[in-house]
């Protein structure tokens, strides 16, 4: 495992905003149907615009998971060690069983990708029968976030442990990247993914060193970020 650093390269020119990554993530990680209009997705897809009026306008969709920073400010902020930078390829873990719900990490995160469970999760009657064994049902009052589908690293991509032999760690891929039809989200060893590409990171000036990078041919996106 040593030396491998997992990461994503998201091609903004290839995202059509179809939302498959979001629903794949919801289903994989047992995120309950949205309640009360609060953001609960671990990966959000927002429309970004260049601020110009039609016809000079331009827009794209920006998928935003947890950046799994090299120097995560959330880890420094957590008083109980519920979120740590793990040795498993730099995945920033989030352990809801240990979380005390103080939300210091949410305040520390410059990307706004951490979610607080304001209520106990609930599903329409009977629908909790489709919960997957890949993520716990988080109770009210904890913080949760994208884990790069770390369970797939443990269990293998299909969630079935025996499949691991074929996949190998090289085949480890997140649910969103797997379901993305256009291949806008690429997941893997970040050094390999970045090779020969002109990628940029969100809020690079914050010095958090995100492991999620973006590529686009649009100059205004880079300028604005």
């Amino acid at each position: 495992m040593s030396g491998v650093v997992w990461g994503m390269v998201i091609d903004l020119d290839r995202c059509t905003g179809c939302g498959v990554c979001q629903s794949a993530c919801r289903l994989e990680n047992n995120i309950p149907p949205q309640q009360g209009g609060r953001d609960s997705d671990w990966i959000s897809v927002a429309r970004e615009v260049n601020g110009q009026a039609f016809p000079e306008s331009d827009a794209l969709f920006l998928p935003k998971p947890c950046m799994h920073c090299e120097h995560p400010p959330c880890v420094a902020a957590c008083p109980v060690g519920a979120t740590v930078k793990s040795g498993q390829g730099g995945i920033v873990s989030q352990n809801p069983a240990r979380c005390i719900g103080c939300r210091a990490c949410m305040k520390a995160c410059p990307y706004g990708v951490r979610r607080f469970t304001w209520t106990d999760p609930s599903w329409p009657r009977g629908m909790d029968a489709t919960l997957t064994p890949f993520a716990s049902v988080r109770p009210k009052g904890v913080v949760e976030k994208c884990t790069f589908c770390a369970h797939r690293l443990v269990l293998g991509n299909s969630g079935v442990s025996g499949a691991r032999e074929q996949d190998g760690t090289g085949g480890f891929v997140t649910a969103c990247a797997q379901a993305c039809p256009t291949g806008a989200i690429e997941f893997g060893e970040i050094a390999t993914l970045l090779r020969g590409r002109e990628a940029f990171a969100l809020l690079a000036e914050q010095g958090t060193g995100p492991q999620v990078h973006y590529v686009t041919r649009r100059a205004w996106v880079r300028g604005g970020k």
Binding site: G19, V20, S23, R26, P33, D39, V45, M127
Partner: peptide
């Protein structure tokens, strides 16, 4: 509308 996809219906 599929329930789990509710957030795939964007705010815009």
């Amino acid at each position: 509308v599929p329930l789990q996809s509710l957030t795939a219906i964007r705010k815009d």
